[in-house]
């Protein structure tokens, strides 16, 4: 139990911090209890095996995993550029990358619609040349989730790269390793815990994505309706179903975060 060891070495925590900290904790716990309190336990198995929920679950799993994979392929190199490359306007680039964290997701969805929609800046020409249509499709769901979730990965990995002592990389390079080999054999293994933590956060954010999805990808059962959208729809028709789906989302996200924390986070 590292918690006990630490409290022995640093003495007792100041009472004010304990009170304020516990208030902070309560603020997170009470809404969860509010949800638990309304769970219709008897009806839950039926509610969660309805076609709407199964469709939404399938789409949520596919879209959140795809968004995490895309974020990994293009987000990690972006984090590397931000941490290691020197270029003008880096501060602005970094702000743009973190913007989706503070923007209302609806704004992100609107921006995606006007950029990648059928009449959009990029989406228009793309649609004319390839016939591809982003909104109202699974692609739209994946893009919306990637847009809001990837900053978590970029920030986490960039932070890890900053904290990484470059002497190991320099040593490997001095021994004749190519730049790619240094990245593959030294850099990536050394930032692995942060990389995995970042991927977990990215996945969790993508799994819970609502605003950008409903704005950009629309809301259609079996095609673009993910679990959060199903909760939103159910809230106005069957509140028990909304609570049951919410419960599942809390449960799944919590399990993933706890599992990863024990294995990889420090």
């Amino acid at each position: 139990m590292p918690f006990q060891q630490r409290s022995i070495t640093t003495g007792r925590s100041p009472i004010l911090l304990v009170v304020l900290g516990l208030t902070g904790l309560t603020f997170f716990v009470v809404p969860l209890l509010g949800l638990l309190w309304r769970v219709p336990w008897k009806r839950t198995p039926d509610l969660l095996t309805s076609q709407m929920v199964l469709d939404a679950l399938r789409l949520s799993v596919i879209a959140s995993l795809a968004a995490t994979a895309i974020s990994c392929v293009i987000g990690v190199p972006l984090a590397w550029l931000l941490a290691r490359a020197e270029f003008p306007g880096k501060a602005i680039v970094r702000s743009i990358v973190t913007l989706p964290l503070v923007l209302p997701p609806v704004v992100g969805g609107t921006a995606l619609l006007f950029a990648l929609g059928r009449r959009g800046l990029v989406g228009g020409p793309l649609n004319q040349v390839t016939g591809l249509l982003m909104p109202f499709s699974l692609w739209g769901v994946i893009l919306a989730a990637t847009f809001v979730a990837m900053p978590f990965l970029v920030i986490t990995v960039e932070g890890a790269l900053h904290n990484l002592d470059e002497k190991h990389e320099r040593a490997a390079a001095s021994l004749g390793a190519s730049r790619w080999m240094v990245i593959r054999r030294i850099t990536v293994p050394m930032i692995a815990p942060s990389l995995i933590a970042g991927l977990a956060l990215t996945w969790a954010r993508a799994f819970g994505e609502f605003g950008a999805t409903v704005t950009f990808a629309g809301n259609l059962q079996g095609r673009t309706q993910t679990l959060p959208l199903a909760v939103f729809v159910a809230l106005e028709s069957d509140r028990d179903a909304a609570v049951a789906i919410s419960m599942i989302m809390v449960f799944v996200s919590l399990i993933v975060l706890i599992a990863l924390r024990d294995r990889w986070w420090r």
Binding site: R119, P135, N219, L220
Partner: peptide, 17 residues
Amino acid sequence: SVEPNVRALLTKVEAGE
């Protein structure tokens, strides 16, 4: 697409989406 309200639906028709 199934939109949450009239305004959201109009916005998407207006944008030509």
